[in-house]
Structures are given as C-alpha cells and as structure tokens.
Design a protein around this nucleic acid. Sequence first.
DNA 1: ATTCTATTTCGGTAATAAGCGAAATGACGA
DNA 2: TCGTCATTTCGCTTATTACCGAAATAGAAT
Lengths: 131, 131
Amino acid sequence: MTKAALRDLIHVTKALADETRVRVLLALRQQELCACQITALFGLAPSTMSEHLFLLKQGGLVDSRKEGRWIYYSLPGKDVPEAAREALRWVCRVLADDPRVVEDVAKLQRILKRDPAELCRKRCRKRRFCL
Amino acid sequence: MTKAALRDLIHVTKALADETRVRVLLALRQQELCACQITALFGLAPSTMSEHLFLLKQGGLVDSRKEGRWIYYSLPGKDVPEAAREALRWVCRVLADDPRVVEDVAKLQRILKRDPAELCRKRCRKRRFCL
DNA sequence: ATTCTATTTCGGTAATAAGCGAAATGACGA
DNA sequence: TCGTCATTTCGCTTATTACCGAAATAGAAT
C-alpha cells in the first residue's frame, strides 16, 4: 500500500516494545489524560514520560491535543494510520485482563478524583511523587 | 486470560521490533526454511541469525523442527499462543506489499533453487556469503 | 512585564540489544 | 571411531535506549 510500510511498522513495534508504553495505551482506553496524570500513574520523571509519549505518537498510537498549558493524550480516532490500527486493537484485547493493567486502572481512578492542577504541582515540585 | 499476558506480549513486541526479524516472518509465509537458507537470505553471520530466530521463537512467532542436522523454521500452526496469533496476521497483512519484502521474496526464489547443502557449505565456510 | 507552571529538550549514565568470530554441541557419514 | 558439518552458545565490542536532573520553552496568571 504505502511505500515504506516496513519503516512505519517498526515505529509501531518499537513503541510497543516497552512495558510502560503499552500500559499507557491501556490507561487511555476510557478517557483522554493529560501528561501529568500519566506521569503520576507510573511514577516516572516527567522527562522520561515525555519521551515515552513521543515514541507512542511517532508510531501513530496516540493523538495529542493542547489545551492551555496542558497536553491531553488519547487513543487515535478515525485518522489512525493503518500500521497502528490493528495493533491497538490487538494489544488492548490481549492485555485487558492482565493483573498489572487492572491495578493501573484502579490507581487511575484515584488519580482522576484529584484536581489535575494540584496533581501536577505536587508531581513537578517534589519529583517521584507517586499516588 | 493467562496470568502474565503483559510479559508474553512484550516478548512478542520485542521480537517484532527489529527489521530483520519481521522480514524473516514474511519470508516464511509460503514455506518452511532451514536456518542456513534464512541466513543466506539476509547475509548476516550464522550466530547473529541464530539469535534472531531464538527471539522469534521465544515470542511464539515461529515453530522449529529438527531434521538431521538441519533445523527448519516455519510460521506456527494451530498451537500458536494467543499473544502471537493476531500479531502475525497483522504484520503479514501490513507488510505484504512493502518493496523490501517483495525483494526478499524474489531473492528467496533464487535461494530455493539451490541445493540447501551446497548453500550451507558456502555460507558457513566463507562468511558473509550472500546470494 | 514578570512570574508561575506544564511540558519538552539536552547532556550524561547505566542497562539492553545487535553484531561478529571463535569455540562448543549434536547429528550424520565414512 | 573419527571427521564433517549445521547450528547454537559464549565473550566481546558497538549502538541503541531508558532513565534522570537541569535547563529551555511556551502558555497563564498576576
């Protein structure tokens, strides 16, 4: 179809070849999340998570939307590139019941109850803040 | 479903996160191939290819069968693990028309015309033999 | 304008992975 | 048995990547 399907696919598989990144995708199933919420969910440095999100975006596995200072990430909509669409369905289906992913969802519920602004402040001031 | 779906899936995605390895999978669509044929196809050292094949096997993306001194690799049959089945269909479908993959198929035709024994001898004696 | 603040970019370190050649393994043939 | 040969394992080097903190960027609020 497209000319460089191989390169595109490798972008996708490299993006998926890291535990943190696939867990991010699973966390986005229900709603979009801002970068600080994702960062809080996994307890990594903001810079680290930013790089993970860049790789996901490069693979076409997430969309991002800027609103004020916040950047919201979400699973891609109808414009999802071909190489990524099936991969997303596959990953979400295979991992839906994985215990780690279930834990992540529970923790995410707690994070969503908090004010994102306050979350960010805590997160960015004192590093390694983890709910 | 299974307990450690996440670990299994990462094995699959890491196996797929390398250009050589996905090209090996595509080359196996039509027929099983022995290790020396695969090695000749890509022009890598036998030890390197052996490690690639190990990773593919670890991800459940190939089966292997020993016949005498030769080891034949093939796409997995009905016993393919859940984490790998859909991934295989996805990769093969997305890459079917990629120019590099098409080249590989053409080169593979030439390799299949040769006697595997002779191929192996050349390949293993003088390293970097490439058809 | 200046100060906060959410995110990204940069520089560096430690862990992981791809590549090779040499040596080990295991099966066949003389 | 002994050598031959296809493949794998091992030790090593180089390249890539995950991670961090510090600095840079960009948007909001004062």
